[in-house]
Design a protein around this nucleic acid. Structure first.
Length: 417
RNA sequence: GUGGGUGUAGCUCAAUUGGCAGAGCACUUGACUGUGGCUCAAGAUGUUGGGGGUUCAAGUCCCCUCACCCACCCCA
């Protein structure tokens, strides 16, 4: 075959597509109850939107975006994450605040694919916009925790941190940079670059010698301003009140520029290197970065592919071979058009039914029905057409009953398995 | 962008020091002409990922390339 998928993309075959539907329905139901409304935004936006919001120092903007020009010479990009678009939509459509929105949308990043990482993936996100209160963060975390517990994420744990605000973060950064400069000769090349661009990111470094040095680095937590500390304490208090276990990790920084105060990640121990299932946090400056008014917000987004991967062990999703409730087997060419007429009547009455079009003797027809996972078959041959009484056969037990069309509809037999 | 691994039938995998490309499952047909799953018999299927080289001879050795997987990085 001449064609194959573009690198990093996937075909989602029926078995997985069904599991996805179940997942999405579960999320929809839980979020609706909590006052979230669905939203969809365009798959591509102006490149500048992401540049201004996701941020110039983020890897996403620096090297992972699908950026292109349209015929009008506009500088566009495929959506790498959902939050900027949602905020843009709120501002552009003057959506009344506060508001709770959720979405399920494809995201595109030109990363090198590996387990749990694709160039197109689906994120389900939930955003609470217009509320600066720590209770909003705590509620959102509770929602996420319940959702992932219900989905059955293997080895799930949550990490939490506060990265301060524009009052206290710069002060801390200066202290951190001063510290790093003192040790710069002992640190790896990349860390020295990070020092200049986004000093907080040095904490992500995996080099052992760097980590040793960082052990004695000043901690973010000790440099939060009064307001941020209070906010963070209230978030933690709220989470504890819900009995949600978490690990405070003052190295948790997150790669997007717009976060302030609360940042969270839900991780799974079963995903290999790409262990983050869900990431999120507060983004009180995002609207302003985009040239709008001050609008606080907090949210999270999780990867559908990763959630499904991590729920394979104890997950609630079925992954069962789909079955056909009722397969009609017409014997002889006249019977096919008769069966087709019949099948639409059955469907109209609410039954799930299909007609086998390929001709053949009854023996072969039954073989086919078995290989197509039919639960029941209806035999329609010369005798049946003449008498109006059909044979309904249960494929599992082999039991047969003779029924008229009316009796068949009444019994709703096709739907019982 | 940088490493490591793997590419043989639809799927899972064999093929000795380089010596006729195979098996199981699945599929098709028949035994069984209106009663499937079991059994038996027969059948179809390949540019051995692609290109080049060495050789009388390459799935096997060498070079290049592509794809996938895993990891670094980063993230969902």
């Amino acid at each position: 075959m001449r064609f194959q998928r573009v690198k990093g993309t996937r075909d989602i075959l029926p078995l997985e597509a069904l599991a996805r539907r179940e997942l999405e329905q579960l999320v929809f139901s839980r979020l609706s109850r909590s006052g979230f409304q669905p939203i969809h935004t365009p798959t591509f936006e102006k490149f500048e939107l992401y540049q201004r919001s996701t941020g110039e120092s983020s890897d996403i903007v620096i090297k992972e975006m699908y950026r292109f020009q349209d015929m009008g010479g506009r500088d566009l990009a495929l959506r790498p994450e959902g939050t900027p678009s949602v905020m843009r939509a709120i501002l552009e459509n003057h959506i009344k605040l506060p508001v709770r929105l959720w979405y399920s949308m494809s995201m595109f990043r030109q990363d090198k694919p590996q387990k749990g990482r694709y160039r197109e993936h689906t994120q389900i996100g939930a955003e609470i916009v217009g509320e600066a209160e720590p209770e909003a963060d705590a509620e959102l975390i509770k929602l996420g925790f319940d959702l992932f517990s219900e989905i059955g994420i293997d080895g799930m744990y949550m990490e939490l941190n506060s990265i301060g605000c524009r009052e206290c973060r710069p002060t801390y950064q200066v202290k951190l940079v001063n510290f790093l400069k003192k040790h710069s000769s002992e640190m790896c090349e990349e860390c020295r670059v990070r020092m200049e661009r986004n000093p907080l990111r040095v904490f992500d470094c995996k080099v052992a010698s760097c980590q040793d040095i960082l052990k004695s680095a000043p901690s973010q937590r000790d440099h939060l301003c009064k307001e941020c500390k209070e906010h963070f304490d209230k978030v933690k208090k709220g989470i504890s009140a819900f009995n949600i276990p978490y690990q405070e990790n003052d190295r948790l920084v997150r790669g997007l520029d717009y976060y302030s105060r609360t940042v969270i990640e839900f991780k799974s121990t079963s995903l290999g290197a790409q262990d983050a299932v869900c990431g999120g946090g507060r983004y009180d400056y995002l609207a302003e970065e985009m040239g709008g008014p001050h609008i606080p917000g907090t949210g999270f987004a999780f990867g559908v592919e990763r959630a499904l991967l991590a729920s394979k062990g104890e997950g609630i999703f079925t992954y069962e071979q789909p079955t056909i409730a009722l397969l009609i087997l017409p014997l002889g060419s006249d019977a096919t058009s008769f069966a087709l007429d019949l099948v639409f009547k059955l469907r109209k009455a609410g039954l799930e039914a299909l007609v086998e079009f390929r001709s053949g003797g009854l023996s072969r027809m039954l073989k086919r029905a078995a290989s197509r996972n039919a639960r029941k078959v209806l035999i329609v041959g010369e005798d049946e057409m003449a008498s109006g009484v059909f044979i309904l056969r249960d494929m599992k037990s082999g039991e047969q009953r003779e029924l008229s069309f009316e009796e068949l509809i009444e019994s709703q037999d096709a739907d019982s398995s």
